[in-house]
Nucleic acid binder design. Structure first.
Lengths: 374, 374
DNA sequence: GGCTCAGATGTAAGCGGTTACAGAGGAAGA
DNA sequence: TCTTCCTCTGTAACCGCTTACATCTGAGCC
């Protein structure tokens, strides 16, 4: 064993400048052992100042850079964490990754990012290949069920779920209160005097979308208003689907006086559709979004929307993960940490009182039996 | 040596279900050697079908997942590539990462993403820690000079530069023709009859911003128009700076009839400012952006902008990197691959002829000495 | 001077894979 | 029947680092 090492180290005759030097060349050049070099470079154990300097000089001369994979294998620490997102489109994910990245680099961690995780089998395979590559996982998979998680999620590596549906109680999770956010939005519209509020939903099977729909319905029911199926439009969280839904709403008779879109991207598409149909917002139609994407405030009109601290969500997810990585090595079953973030409403210009305000001057709380729309 | 292995493998008495099993336990359970297990799992070398099945069964029973770090060290292949971006804000980067991610996962690669690289020293340090962790690098650092790159960029690992200033000819690069794009935008405005076109620039020291400014000036000079310094406003590529600059332009007397913003984010901010000042776009003021961010077409009015295939840019960068990773192992000096992408103009609704169209009916090509603005 | 003890350094065994090389067995050809 | 060769499997040396343990040195103390 030893001899083979010795051969390798000095076997490279003149140090072969093309090859990346290992810690062995450094040791040889410095006239020290690899152990000392390692200690000097990592500030582990006692090393004389002069010795350390000799190591540093050798490192400098050789252009030595430690090999991460070797270190990972040896220390069983990768200093990087995996981030799996359902998608990569749009401002929402860019924001959340930014939040995670900020927290990660502050702690010296790298980020292994991967988007587009709708296919369960493919995602499971990817999770496999992450073994030994990450120290923790931040997973956002609103389309994947809790049962799936139990199966596919790696044991022995901390995981933080973002906006998980909550079925799986065994991992830390962080979620925004979608239902509450949606209620806030709809209640705001109702308070302004709207009675016919359309809902622009998200993709089938998406947990966030489902909760926002539930919140919408709750608010209507609480106000004594009827639910009507044709006011609930389908969307997929993309701008284009918002555009199409907006066109549909514009063509409805009687036309609703307000639209609540389940996310900002669709609200933006909606806005474009309404403009094409010469409908003014908010004069002819009010519009409320969800997420408070960075550009929401710069739209024309500025978008009233449910405000979610997106980057902060990412930051918190990372913080939670870090604490579970180095603070709480063996988390006993059932002690998972579930944080719920309550969104607020950012009231801007896209929602106002409807033009034909109800004469009865009813408050939003007044249960009316009048059917504004069949 | 051998004995230690044997001890480790069988030393774990009942297989300790909590610990993640290594290839040695698999070999033991399957009654085979680690070499055979490795071969069976990687389809390397000849393995009898029945033997392979025995391996697969053992893997299944133990829940074995190969340890990436070990494999990386052994094969000197990480199957992941590093992506360094100057920033993480906004749709532009989200798009580019999406393009890269798509191409990467198609090829089975992981993405190590990191944003906010303005500080040179910090970035250099990060590049170090990437050694042995990535097989290639996609780097976008418009604020870092070519000289810096020479120093900091790791040898021996393929690199693709995006929108590098071109000083460094030794690495593959991919860039969009900023100057040309800017000229397209300004020429469009001039052709519409505008004579006083303000420019909303990017951050100091940013190569992209500098080139776009140059393109703006070129177009004006080519049209025989004077350059006036106070029409060139400072920005930082963020919405907020667009908002502020928009307010400044609105207050100028005489007011320019058009604004060319060096990116879409600032154009969006600008749009908001103009709305606040009750200026209509394009009736009172025309506006052109740069990038064609996904939502540009959904704005009110739909933004006329220089169209850059952002996701495609990412995809190509990845493709280029991959070919240089496995196709062309030792790229001789000077054979670097430089691709320039020519942007086009997406003409939408935010730019139109100025209200007070010049009576002289001069074409944009006519060199006039008239100073529209001092 | 001999002792202890702490500080500085070296030796070598891991970490968990891959793979060159060797060996065993069986089939085909002489 | 004996080579020869091919298929399949095993042995052990790596990959480059960390670190437990051993070793050595010299200072401090009796």
């Amino acid at each position: 064993m030893r001899s083979s090492r010795a051969v390798r180290a000095s076997g490279t005759p003149a140090g072969d400048p093309a090859a990346t030097p290992s810690i062995y060349e450094v040791a040889r050049v410095a006239g020290l052992s690899v152990a000392t070099v390692s200690r000097a470079l990592n500030d582990k154990g006692p090393v004389r100042a002069e010795t350390r300097q000799r190591v540093l000089d050798a490192v400098e001369r050789l252009g030595y850079v430690p090999h991460s994979a070797a270190r990972m294998l040896s220390t069983r620490k990768t200093m990087s964490i995996g981030v799996l997102l359902p998608d990569m489109h749009g401002a929402f994910f860019s924001e959340i990754v930014r939040g995670i990245d900020l927290a990660a680099r502050a702690a010296g961690y790298h980020l292994l990012v991967s988007g587009s995780h709708s296919d369960a089998a493919e995602t499971a395979a990817l999770l496999q290949t992450l073994h030994g590559r990450v120290d923790g996982l931040i997973l956002m998979a609103p389309a994947l069920g809790g049962a799936w998680l139990q199966k596919a999620l790696p044991r022995r590596v901390p995981v933080v779920l973002i906006n998980d549906d909550g079925t799986d109680g065994r991992h830390d999770s962080l979620r925004i209160d979608n239902r509450r956010g949606a209620r806030l939005a709809v209640e705001h519209l109702l308070a302004l005097g709207h009675r016919a509020v359309a809902f622009l939903g998200g993709p089938e099977g998406n947990a966030d979308a489902a909760e926002r729909l539930a919140g919408y319905r709750e608010a209507l029911v609480a106000a004594g208003l009827p639910l009507s199926r044709h006011l609930e439009l389908a969307g997929d969280f993309g701008e284009e689907s918002g555009l199409q839904a907006g066109a549909k709403v514009a063509a409805l008779v009687p036309r609703p006086t307000a639209i609540f879109a389940a996310n900002d991207a669709m609200a933006i598409g909606c806005l474009a559709a309404l403009r094409e149909h010469n409908l003014r917002v908010p004069e002819d139609l009010s519009l409320v979004g969800f997420d408070d994407v960075p550009i929401a405030r710069y739209l024309t009109p500025a978008l009233t929307t449910v405000q979610v601290p997106i980057a902060e969500l990412g930051r918190q997810a990372m913080a939670c993960l870090l604490s579970s990585i180095d603070g709480r090595p063996e988390n006993p079953e059932g002690a998972a940490n579930h944080t719920v973030i309550a969104p607020t409403l950012a009231i801007r210009a896209s929602a106002a009182a409807p033009a034909e305000a109800p004469k009865k001057h009813e408050t939003s709380r007044t249960p009316t039996q009048r059917r504004t729309s069949t």
